[in-house]
């Protein structure tokens, strides 16, 4: 009966694999070349400009090695990672349900939507003095800062995702006698996951900013502290080495965010 079916289906996937791989390796080449060029320009500029302002790439890398060997960088990295991780995890754990509830519960939405968009638009750094006044120095206020930086993009993207569920999905579920809790399980949550991943990716970027801001303006610690004290000693190479580490961290974390996003949006198909 199904003379038409065998020719259809997911067959195109393997055929497409090779060009993708070729494209990916050529992208890697371009990527590497651009990194090399950047390092070269940095090196050149470093030799032309006063070492107080800019240190050549090679000196930065050498100083980076020293910071790692002395244990200064690993210690700072660990301290920062704790602030970053705790703040981000709490932001995700709070942001996901908050966004979903906001989308599904009418009175919450009506009551809180403007507050949340307002807080999202507000530069979080402005809140740091208040946090300092209320919570003082220590680990907790720093985690709160990271949390505040990171939570709003999660809430907003999850909320927007969960409110954009096409009515037809809800109707299908209701025609099979779904109650609200079944809707959450089979429609609301799975539909929203890709949006949540986008929110988490945005949150990662903002949590990193929040982490450095907290380490600058609250009790100095971690990578922020390392940047502050080395710059006070005019140890520009160490400043650059630390900033380089923060950059690499950011790039890696965002790549992780992108990977998560792609993994959980697979059912949307190639766009």
């Amino acid at each position: 009966m199904t003379t038409t079916t065998p020719t259809l289906g997911p067959a195109p996937a393997p055929a497409a694999a090779r060009p993708v791989r070729r494209r990916r390796s050529s992208a890697l080449l371009t990527y590497g070349a651009s990194l090399l060029a950047g390092a070269a320009i940095w090196e050149l500029a470093g030799h032309l400009i006063d070492p107080v302002f800019l240190v050549p790439f090679t000196d930065t890398v050498r100083r980076l090695g020293e910071l790692v060997a002395s244990g200064e960088l690993p210690t700072a990295l660990l301290a920062s990672a704790q602030v970053f991780g705790a703040g981000l995890i709490i932001a995700v754990l709070v942001g996901l349900p908050a966004g979903l509830l906001l989308a599904r519960v009418r009175f919450l939405r009506v009551g809180l939507e403007d507050w949340i968009t307002g807080l999202y638009a507000m530069p979080m750094v402005a809140l740091i003095p208040f946090i300092l006044a209320i919570f003082g120095f220590g680990f907790t206020p720093k985690v709160i800062v990271v949390f505040l930086f990171a939570v709003f993009p999660v809430i907003i993207t999850v909320y927007e995702g969960a409110s954009s569920i096409p009515a037809r999905h809800i109707e299908v579920a209701r025609s099979f006698r779904a109650r609200e809790r079944h809707l959450w399980r089979d429609v609301v949550i799975p539909y929203t996951i890709p949006f949540a991943m986008t929110g988490i990716r945005l949150a990662i970027a903002r949590a990193l900013v929040g982490m450095i801001a907290a380490e600058f303006f609250l009790a100095v610690s971690g990578l922020g502290e390392l940047i502050l004290i080395t710059s006070r000693r005019f140890d520009t190479a160490a400043v650059f080495a630390t900033i380089l580490v923060v950059c690499i961290l950011g790039v890696l974390l965002l790549a992780l965010g992108h990977a998560l996003e792609r993994r959980f949006a697979a059912w949307r198909g190639p766009s």
Binding site: H169, V172, S175, F176, R268, G269
Partner: peptide, 20 residues
């Protein structure tokens, strides 16, 4: 008064859940 048991709908838009 609400979707009864034993009634099933087939939709013009197929109504499949794309994530399943």
């Amino acid at each position: 008064v609400e979707p009864p048991e034993g009634v099933a709908v087939v939709f013009q838009h197929f109504g499949l859940f794309p994530w399943k």
